[in-house]
Amino acid sequence: MSTFLLIVVTGLGLGALYFLAASGLSLIYGLMGVLNFAHGAFMTAGAYAAWVTMTRLPSSMGVGLRLLVAVVVALLVGAIVGVVVEVVLIRPLYRHHIQQVLVTVGLSLAAVAAVQGIWGADPRAVARPEVMTGTVGLLGARIPVDRFVYLAVALALFGGLLALLRYTRLGLVIRAGVENRTMVEALGIDVQRTFTIVFGLGGAVAALAGVLFSQYAGSVSPGQGGSLLIYAFIVVVIGGMGSLTGTAVAAFAVGLVQQLANYYAVSGVGDLSVVLLLALVLLARPSSLKGATA
């Protein structure tokens, strides 16, 4: 029972990370129809920004405090990268969806290579504060605290994004834009600016996901963002392309399935069962998942 509980909580924690990685992707896709391959690069940028900040800050500061500062820096870096990418690379290719995908593909390849050139291909260890490394007893199981941290951050983000979408003017424009972009433009609202904001937001969330994932893995490496991105893609497709609630449900389902299958079957089956889950969802309910015919 205690093992089961540990695995479930770990699965939920992993699902929380997947949600962090996928929510920005889903938001950008839903509003702009852009499949952002550079999202992995945003995550890598955030993770490395945090890692560099933590190593540069004086070690007299506590690890937890350094991590907090690093998270803030990573959020800023992610937002700036997102905004710059949108303005410089995505905006000129407005409505050319395939070209937008191609540009983000090129960007992701170049960014990973650049990171690899500067900091090397090997994983670098990141310092983890005691809060993240400790365990807590729950119904007889010793559960690492960091799982709950990821869960809390993901739930806070989910709530925050929902509130943003429901109760603010920006959220109203985003929701309307997802529904019918041309109509929103015809009503005299600057959708362009909303795109930039959403990209910045997506970049910041991706950076946060990158930092937390590097905490989960205990290290940063150039390919980390890319491997997380693939699960984020799966989550976005299962969740219904552009729906935030769907993304959240799919993220936790994927995390749970992966962890349970990895433990109760052979290690590695979990990753495959996620792809199997995707295939099953596609076969069972393809109509709810129809992507834009770009």
């Binding site: 792809v275 076969l283 393809p286 992507g291």
Partner: peptide, 17 residues
């Protein structure tokens, strides 16, 4: 069974498997 961008993501998932 899916088209456009979703097709791209699904094929990526299979390759990853």
């Amino acid at each position: 069974r899916v088209g456009g961008i979703a097709f791209a993501m699904v094929t990526l998932a299979f390759a990853q498997a």
